[in-house]
Design a protein around this nucleic acid. Structure first.
Lengths: 185, 185
DNA sequence: GTCTATAGGGCGATAGAC
DNA sequence: GTCTATCGCCCTATAGAC
């Protein structure tokens, strides 16, 4: 290398997403990703703990945004309402990345290996969300259930939003929460 | 004397659980598991698609039982009540395996790799449970939410039961559902 | 049952940034 | 000079192909 190109991490992420879309996750090797980014396999593993991580570490920091919006939410709001508010706002921030998000979901749906990783990332988000909710007046148990329920609602509403991009996302979130409530009563 | 000992699969499972308890999942190789079972690495992969599967394929068939009990449940019951009933009965069936279940949970908690696989197994159970609930009068959305909520309740109640084995599990399930309801209202 | 590709990582050398 | 990112070499284990 004559000179270091900047943003090795970003280049690896871009190369990886390109290749995954071209040939699917399983048929792409780490060496190929590194090659396309003008780097080596060894450097890839300096940036990402394993091959799956490169798929998740890009895009906007959804989890950060959720926590930020939650901290801003009216302290008088109950746990479920605060969680819904934070997830709704964080979801709206994703609108500019519609195409990217759709491609991401397609790869995810086709790759059990990545679905596993996605589930544990979501579970991690549920945990930190619950911990943040606990700093309100609620019990640990209530915080966990509120966080899980709100994330279930978000997941369903986001899927709906992707197939109906013209819909109002906050409306979808409200309607979906109503459906969850009626399902558990 | 038979040319090979019977129940190769069971021996592999037992050997694996022993080794995982002794040294942790990550430090155990497939070759070691096969060795202890008196078999070869090749035979291991003949029985299990990957190293993680040997951890999940043993013990009682919880998912089968859930579906069986659901099929037996009064058709007049709502989705959430039917799911709760089925999970409660399937949970009671686990009582004889208390020690085994506790050891399993300890390994699970210590091994992210296995937690990932556990999450996708649970998600799969949520899906088939929802499909079964749909055969009642409910919408697809309601079936999914009822299945997820019931599994959340089960997970919390089962954890409670493990730390208080003298408690009445059906009671724990009822109380925990009440907590979930109050958390989402 | 053997043979091979790939994931993942330890270690040390080196090249560039400061 | 120091500090850090990249790289080259080599190894093990998983997993699948032949």
């Amino acid at each position: 290398m004559a000179r270091w190109e900047p943003d090795a991490r970003g280049r690896l992420q871009q190369a990886a997403m390109q290749l995954f879309r071209e040939r699917g996750y399983a048929d792409v090797t780490v060496a190929e990703i590194a090659d396309r980014a003008g780097l080596t396999k060894r450097t890839f593993f300096n940036h990402f703990a394993d091959k799956r991580e490169v798929f998740f570490d890009n895009g906007p920091a959804f989890g950060q945004n959720v926590l930020k919006y939650l901290a801003e939410a009216d302290p008088g709001l109950g746990a479920i309402d605060a969680a819904m508010l934070a997830l709704t706002r964080a979801g709206l921030d994703l609108a500019p990345y519609y195409e990217f998000g759709k491609a991401r979901l397609e790869i995810l749906a086709a790759t059990p290996e990545l679905r596993e990783r996605d589930l544990i990332k979501t579970a991690g988000l549920a945990t930190v969300l619950a911990e943040a909710l606990e700093r309100r007046e609620v019990s640990s148990r209530e915080a966990v259930f509120a966080a899980q329920a709100a994330l279930s609602v978000f997941s369903a509403a986001a899927a709906e939003w992707i197939s109906h991009p013209e819909a109002d996302f906050p409306d979808l979130m409200r309607q979906t929460l109503a459906e969850l409530r009626s399902a558990v009563l």
